[in-house]
């Protein structure tokens, strides 16, 4: 497509406004609200913070690998929290790991989401009587999607990711802006 810009021509001299470039470039343009557009972009490229805690991590890796290929939903693992959007808590959160997880969450830029994968991350799972296990990662960070199972199948994780995508676009439609977390709280462990 040729874009020539708003050059004054013979017909549009004087006070008549020139032809808008928008009409020429995208004649069939749809208009959308900016937050919905952002949500569309966000949900289509969810970068997950790649860290596995326990058994679920194996299924998480499996979901990314050749057979299931989570990449086709735009979900790419990223080892650094600074560029990650989603934290998939895959596995048992023990008290020794609680502080690092909290800090990882705080290091992620807004907007950010958390998927609690598996029953351990949901509520302690088989280890609910243990002295050293945090009974669900929601005691530490806000969780958006819980994926049940011990461990969840890769398909279940994919479904969880799609639910998160739905949630992102619904939140944008309902004008719920992404939660901006308050200032980091590192007092508790």
């Amino acid at each position: 497509m040729e874009i020539s810009g708003n050059q004054p021509t013979a017909s549009t001299t004087g006070n008549t406004p020139g032809e808008a470039i928008f009409e020429r470039v995208l004649p069939n343009a749809l208009v959308a609200k900016s937050n919905e557009l952002f949500a569309l972009a966000r949900k289509s490229s969810l970068w997950t913070l790649s860290f596995g805690l326990a058994c679920c991590a194996i299924e998480m890796i499996d979901a990314h690998m050749s057979h299931h290929d989570l990449d086709r939903f735009g979900v790419v693992t990223w080892p650094s929290p600074r560029q990650a959007d989603v934290m998939i808590v895959a596995g048992t959160v023990v008290k020794k790991m609680a502080e690092p997880i909290k800090r990882l969450y705080e290091q992620m830029p807004d907007p950010k989401w958390v998927i609690a994968m598996g029953s351990c991350a949901t509520n302690g799972g088989p280890y609910y009587r243990s002295y050293s296990v945090v009974m669900g990662v929601d005691h530490l960070v806000p969780v958006d999607v819980y994926v049940p199972g011990c461990p969840p199948r890769p398909e279940a994780l994919m479904y969880g990711v799609m639910e998160l995508q739905k949630k992102i676009s619904n939140d944008a439609k309902n004008r719920k802006l992404p939660v901006i977390t308050s200032k980091p709280d590192t007092s508790t462990s």
Binding site: G91, T92, V94, P100, Y127, R129, S130, S132, V133
Partner: peptide, 14 residues
């Protein structure tokens, strides 16, 4: 180590 210490051995006793 110990970031995944889930106390399995103790849980077995119960």
């Amino acid at each position: 180590i110990g970031y995944l210490h889930r106390g399995s051995e103790k849980l077995c006793e119960r």
